[in-house]
């Protein structure tokens, strides 16, 4: 995976997080969204680069939840 793709996936996760801050359960909302719309490869890629990436706390929590579920 190129740096461009990694950067873009992190950006996308953060962008979702910034748009659902008023949802009653933003972490579940972000996790559901990524689960429903991202391909398996995109999910695997984002899991691979999430540690150390600059992520919104809700986005990080959502990705961790999905990663735990996937493994």
């Amino acid at each position: 995976m190129s740096a461009h793709t990694a950067e873009k996936l992190i950006y996308m996760a953060n962008q979702i997080a910034r748009n659902v801050t008023h949802d009653p359960d933003p972490v579940a909302m972000i996790a559901d969204h990524i689960h429903a719309f991202w391909s398996p490869r995109m999910k695997a890629d984002v899991f691979a680069v999430m540690n150390g990436a600059e992520l919104e706390p809700t986005a990080r929590a959502a990705l961790e939840r999905l990663a735990a579920h996937a493994s």
Binding site: M1, S2, H4, T5, K8, F37, S39, R41, M42
Partner: peptide
């Protein structure tokens, strides 16, 4: 049962050689 790639993601995957 898993979603596939959207157009921009296809192009990203292409530049990644996938």
């Amino acid at each position: 049962p898993e979603p596939g790639l959207r157009i921009p993601n296809m192009l990203d995957a292409a530049t990644d050689g996938l």
